[in-house]
Amino acid sequence: MKVTSESLERTIEELAKLPGTGRKSAQRIAMYLLKQPDDSVYRLAETLQNLKRSVKTCCICRTFSDEDPCAICENPKRQNGQICVVEEFQDMYFIERTDEFRGRYHVLGGVLSPMNNIGPDQLHVKSLIQRVNNPEEPVTEIILALNPDAEGEATSFYLHKLLQPFEVQVTRIAYGIPVGTDLEYIDDATLSRAFRSRSTF
């Protein structure tokens, strides 16, 4: 095969490295970009550069943020003694969207998974313990909001155990039935878990 444009080929190669993008999609995106007006493509390039330049990791909760500390960690109104522990940045985003939680967050940056060489040292666990120990902002409750799969469960168990010596209540979000769903369509495992974590009416 003869490549007539080295730059186009290079772009396709780079795009194909993105998650969920194969070579074909990469080709389609590259062709699309090539046909766009110059300034819209430059804007995209600039946005990508800014992404790496200006997005930082919050030194307190380890989330992605333009400011360090992030807006939530800076906000005194969010100091209510609760810290919600999530796996990744986007989980925090989902919870924030509900407007249900008014405390602070802690992003672990993953979950325990020996198969992928991820142990406690690879996660933001030490910084969580430091926050629990911080006398300037007392913590009364740690809410574990990790995924209910094997790795999420193991991590929840590990954190629960780790936090036992501290004077802090450890809770977890409930397993339940999605809102707007008929019981008929719920799988057995979910339904029996929902039963076990039922609440008083």
Binding site: L112, P114, G119, A150, E153, A154, T155, F157, Y158, K161
Partner: peptide, 9 residues
Amino acid sequence: SALEPWNVQ
């Protein structure tokens, strides 16, 4: 202690 979280499950 590394095994413990997995043992429970």
